[in-house]
């Protein structure tokens, strides 16, 4: 194929421009201003960042966020791995049905899903009412407005995001390796532990970091299922801006959050091909 002349490429850049200008003007520029505000308000300097080390309520929020996100990631990966493992080996038809079961929740409004969990988990909710009706428990179980409720809701939200990259990774595994292991006398368990699991590890690392990153900045589900009692970082930021109007603290935490996320992504880029993970190629 002949390389297009410069003028030709120039025309194609004109097609790119509207999106690029929108992204720069209405996305990247406001984002940079968040960083700017974090060192300029209320007074110029790194005063806001010092709070990261001195303020105990910020410490509590950061620890709660990390704890819930790590727990969510671990549970999500475990469950997601089982689903992806079965899907990767199922027949075409079964795979399609399972995929539907993964994609439908993925695209249903996060608010609807949080609402559904509220109807199930609250004190007079469906689970507590039926357990009490059957006489299994006398008092309602505290299933919601605590870390348990948040974790349930988050695992439910994150599962599809774990299954999809795991599945992509597992589909790339040459199944003849497994057949060979079985043929050489390995049990089902051995061929899984010694062959399949190691080969699927890059997908596991990719999926974990992806789920962890999405969990970190998640607002809606933790806010609804935490009921304002268990604060995670995203909700804390929104409270700083919308309720107590402390832009300095809010933007400082927002900046900390994206710096942390991009550091994790840098780590991820060393392990797996990012563009494959997002399906861009």
């Amino acid at each position: 194929m002949r390389r297009p002349a410069f003028g030709e490429t120039g025309i194609y850049w004109m097609l790119v421009m509207p999106a690029l200008l929108m992204l720069i003007g209405f996305y990247l520029f406001p984002l940079v201003r968040v960083l700017w505000v974090s060192v300029m308000e209320p007074t110029p300097g790194l005063g806001n960042y010092a709070l990261l080390f001195t303020n105990s309520s910020i410490h509590r929020v950061l620890l709660t966020t990390l704890r819930i996100c790590l727990l969510t990631t671990a549970i999500t990966l475990l469950l997601g791995y089982v689903v992806a493992y079965v899907m990767a080996q199922a027949s075409e038809r079964t795979q399609r049905w399972m995929m539907l079961g993964i994609l439908l929740p993925l695209w249903i409004s996060v608010l609807v899903r949080a609402f559904a969990w509220v109807t199930l988990l609250r004190r007079q909710g469906i689970i507590n009412n039926s357990l009490m009706g059957m006489g299994v428990i006398d008092d309602p179980l505290p299933l919601i407005w605590n870390e348990l409720g948040i974790t349930i809701g988050m695992v439910h939200y994150m599962l599809p995001f774990a299954v999809l990259p795991l599945l992509t990774g597992m589909r790339g595994i040459d199944r003849r390796c497994l057949a060979a292991a079985r043929g050489l006398g390995a049990s089902r368990m051995q061929s899984f532990m010694r062959v399949f699991l190691p080969l699927s590890l890059p997908g596991v690392v990719g999926a974990s970091i992806l789920v962890f990153i999405f969990s970190l900045g998640f607002l809606v589900t933790p806010a609804i299922l935490g009921g304002g009692r268990t604060l995670m970082i995203a909700e804390y930021i929104s409270v700083q801006i919308l309720d107590v109007v402390q832009w300095g603290v809010g933007t400082m935490l927002a900046t900390t959050l994206i710096v942390f996320i991009f550091a994790l992504l840098g780590l991820l880029a060393r392990v797996v091909d990012m563009r494959r993970l997002f399906g861009a190629t």
Partner: peptide
């Protein structure tokens, strides 16, 4: 980038 972070920026703009 978490939407909450972008929300702060676009709000100011």
């Amino acid at each position: 980038v978490p939407t909450i972070v972008y929300a702060l920026g676009i709000y100011r703009l």
